[in-house]
Each structure stands twice: as C-alpha cells, then as structure tokens.
Amino acid sequence: MQHPDISIIISTYNSEAWLEKVMWSYEAQTFKNFEMVIADDGSKQPTLDLIEKMKSLVSYPIIHVWHEDNGFQKSQILNKAILACNSAYILMSDGDCMAREDFLQVHINERETGYFLSGGYFMLPMPISEVITKEDIISQQCFQLDWLKSKGLKSSFKNNKLTAKGFKSQLLNTVTPTNASWNGHNASGWKSDILAINGFDERMQYGGQDRELGERLFNYGIKSKQIRYSAICLHLDHPRGYKTKASIDKNLAIRATTKKENLKWTDFGIKKA
C-alpha cells in the first residue's frame, strides 16, 4: 500500500461488539488512503479474535497495539499507538464512535499546519446502539435522522449535528459555545506536534487526559479549529465503570499545573525522563 495520508487511532477495551460496528464504519469511508491503529488497553481473547477476523474483511490495513491489562492505562497505550502510526497526520477516536462516511474526508480537508481539529460526537441511547447492524452502517441509514427517529430518537437541537451540511455546519461550528479542545473521541493533528510535546501524560487515568494534551499543544503554539458540526460520529452507549472521583481530581490537579506553568512537555509521556 502507498503511504497512508492519515492514521486513525481507535482506543478499545473489551467491547468487541461496539468495536466491530466502528470498524465497519471506516470501511464505508469515502476517503480510502488511511490505516487503523487499534490502541488496546489489555482486552481479552474475543477482541483479539475480532481484530484478526476483520483484517481479512476490510480493505484498510489494521495495526493492533496491545499491552497487558493493568487497570485504566489509556494514556500509556495511546502513546504506544502514536509511535506505531505510519502517517504524518493522526486522528484519534474511540472504539464506541462510528464515523459517518465523510468523517475522514472532513478531517483531511480541514487539516492545516499549526492547527489541530476538534470534533464532537452524537450520543445514541442504548436501545438504538444495540439494534444497529453492519448493513445499517454500510448503507449509512443509521446516520439518517429519520431512521434514528424511527428507532426512538427524541427531537433535540443536538439533532442538527446529523443534518447540518455546507454553510449551516460551518455556521454552527462558528457559533457553538463549546471550546475547540482536544477531544479523544474526535480530534486530529500532526504527529510531529504530538511528539514535540511528548504525547500523553501517563500519570493520568480516566478523565481529561485528552484535554491536557490539547492544553500543552496550545502552550506549544498550536491553534485549534472547531469541526463538531461537520465531522460526525455516533457514540454508542456503554456504562463507565472506571470513572472515579480520585482519578478525576488527580487529573484536574495535573491540568492546573500544565496551565499555571505553561507546560509544553510532560516528563511522563512517550520519552521518559
């Protein structure tokens, strides 16, 4: 294969039913010159079996980066995945976020030297998450508002995320009050910039390690662009058993230091001090 234009890092942990849907969503992408790097935080055999199976079913290359399960160590496995990427440009998303067919094309079109891109996601309730099939993904009907409403989706302003196109999506990107932060489920940037700040801070467990990476990118001089109404992914529902107050508080303290001291580099990242 030619050199990929973009590497997609997908983080996962023991949720192969959702990961399979996500992998099919990348098979349906209109932009084809990419590789997928799966950042696997210690999944068991069913996930490993799924990835082996999918390698022969999809048209894009898959690199599986895995380490032993040692609790929630997403920052560690993401740093390993960053090093495994063969492209100069990296998009990060999660194994529970299905990408609409134009997702990669939007990231490719909007990428720019000196910037990272900040997207959002559209939350699906559990009953809809469960009924989506491979056929629904390949046909893209699961991204259609009418189809989702037929499965029980309620009306909401947020539904504009699914229907906004062209000028309307650009307008909503401009007026949204949400910060254009680095969001681990939908953000992309240059590998050289991520390496220049030493990747993720591996002291950080659940809660905000993606934001902290973005805050160091800002300190390094990188700006961000808002694409939450144009780069669309559907977030499949799941319980969050690893969310603890202790990990959130610890991470907030690390982020406060990053801000106060204007830190660009972490000593707890890809390269160890």
Rank of each mutant, 00 (worst) to 15 (best):
K161E: 10
Q144L: 05
K165M: 05
I128Y: 00
K134R: 08
F167I: 02
I138W: 05
L153C: 15
K149I: 06
D146F: 09
S156V: 12
E135K: 13
F167H: 06
K165E: 01
T163C: 07
K151Y: 05
S150V: 13
Q140H: 03
M123V: 03
Q141C: 04
T163L: 03
F157R: 14
S155Y: 04
D136E: 08
G152T: 10
L124T: 03
T133A: 15
L145Q: 07
G152S: 13
L148H: 01
T133Y: 09
M123H: 13
S155C: 07
I137Y: 02
F143E: 02
S155E: 05
K158P: 06
A164F: 09
T133C: 13
P125T: 01
S139R: 11
G166L: 07
K165R: 10
N160E: 11
T133M: 14
S155T: 11
M126A: 04
M126C: 03
G152R: 11
L162H: 09
P127F: 03
N160Y: 14
Q140K: 03
G166C: 02
L162R: 08
M126N: 07
L153G: 02
I128H: 08
N160W: 12
K161G: 07
L145T: 00
I132C: 14
W147K: 02
K134V: 15
P125W: 04
N160C: 15
W147L: 09
S156C: 11
S156T: 12
L148I: 07
A164I: 06
M126E: 07
K154G: 14
T133V: 13
S129H: 01
L148K: 01
S129V: 04
Q144S: 04
D136T: 03
Q140G: 06
K149S: 09
S156L: 12
F167W: 05
K134L: 15
L145R: 05
E135D: 15
F167E: 02
E130F: 05
E135P: 14
L148A: 01
M123I: 08
K134A: 15
F157S: 10
K134C: 15
L124A: 10
L145S: 00
Q140R: 02
